[in-house]
Design a protein around this nucleic acid. Structure first.
Lengths: 215, 215
DNA sequence: TTATAAAATATTGTCGACAATTTAACTTAA
DNA sequence: TTAAGTTAAATTGTCGACAATATTTTATAA
């Protein structure tokens, strides 16, 4: 692990565990043993424990008292629930957008949608633009409680479901899906906005689950 | 602190801090110093740190790197947001109820409402019954992500806003407010259910904030 | 051989100490 | 007296060791 000054060890350890999970060095059900990690990273158990408990609170790991910390098994239900939750939260939070959005905000949304579908965009870039799109729809939201929670969910799903994002939708589909959200926002109808955004994520959750079941 | 075997120290410490906050021995903005707590509870800093970081993740305390852990200042906005969030979550989660609820479930809801308004019930009991009421409306909800989050919010608001619950509503008002929710559930209309439950909490949040501003 | 009990090992929980950093107290200069 | 700089104290971050518990291995008996 590279060490720079100032940043607490805990945070670097968290990063390390993230990567280990993404790279499937740690798999669902695996126990993460403090001393092993400590030795392999050349640190003591103290910052390891801090990192672990933070990841437990994020819902990525699971603590069993006096047994240890384990990588959570991800069920299809978990995935579905996660996307459903994103839909509920973003659907509501985006309502602030219609109260405050400027012409420029909408213009930006259309720009993002265009970028999603241009030939040269690779998957990774499209994901990135998607994030910007959704962040824009939330830019006027002020409910810290819900925003923080949404952030946690996003972090978690980024880590756990990253692999699935690969070929869920074609470029054209991505474009259409997001255009639909813009149309809903333009309609100014609260119920339409909420249901559209919910549907947006519901569809993705369902798709990922299906993909998994097949495999 | 009373010590019994088996339970990790961390949990007892958390309990202790809860109480200290409720009893206003710790006030918003106060720094909680590890060594002080450790000494006064006759334990080492290790379990103290674990307890603190858990309360940080609950959102009750706030960590500033290398500065310390502080009791969060609660603003009116926080209170409002918390109740708004409860409304959003419960409003959605309760939708499962109408798909699966039996006659007995509804009967139970009516019973709770009755208990709320009988002469002998004191404030504390009414709060307790209120919890049972809401728990019942969620009994068929299965989205772990949202349920866990709601639980966190409830825990937090119990600790932080407990004092406010005293005289927000008269017994009759409490009854009417919950009857309204039952009626919404009976209507089977999803939009009505969600908006009613949202309104239910929105009203409470607004009231608490008003009460605060006056004082 | 298999099942059970005992011993040995591994792992988490807790502790006290030191290091790094921040905060408070003190000094000195204007 | 006040402001800035310096020193001392307090506080968090990290460490290695021991205690308590859980797991694995070994030994024993049927």
């Amino acid at each position: 692990m590279t060490d720079s000054i100032k940043e607490p060890l805990k945070d670097k350890i968290i990063e390390h565990i993230y990567n280990a999970i993404v790279n499937e060095e740690f798999k669902g059900g695996d126990q993460i043993k403090e001393l092993h990690l400590a030795n392999s990273l050349n640190v003591s158990r103290a910052p390891i424990r801090e990192a672990l408990s933070e990841l437990v609170s994020l819902g990525i790991l699971e603590q069993k008292t006096r047994k240890g910390v384990f990588v959570k098994e991800i069920t299809s239900k978990d995935i579905f629930d996660t996307y459903e939750s994103k839909g509920i939260l973003e659907g509501f939070l985006a309502l602030e957008f219609i109260l405050r959005a400027s012409k420029e905000d909408f213009k930006k949304l259309y720009e993002y949608v265009d970028e999603m579908s241009i030939e040269t965009s690779d998957r990774k870039k499209i994901v990135k633009i998607g994030e910007l799109f959704h962040k824009t729809t939330l830019k006027y939201s002020k409910n810290r409680t819900l925003l923080d929670f949404l952030e946690k969910i996003n972090k978690k799903s980024q880590i756990l479901f990253y692999k699935n994002w690969a070929k869920l939708y074609s470029k054209e589909e991505v474009k259409q899906r997001h255009l639909k959200i813009i149309k809903a926002l333009e309609s100014q109808s609260k119920t339409l906005i909420e249901s559209t955004i919910r549907e947006h994520y519901f569809e993705t959750g369902t798709k990922i689950v299906l993909l998994r079941e097949v495999k």
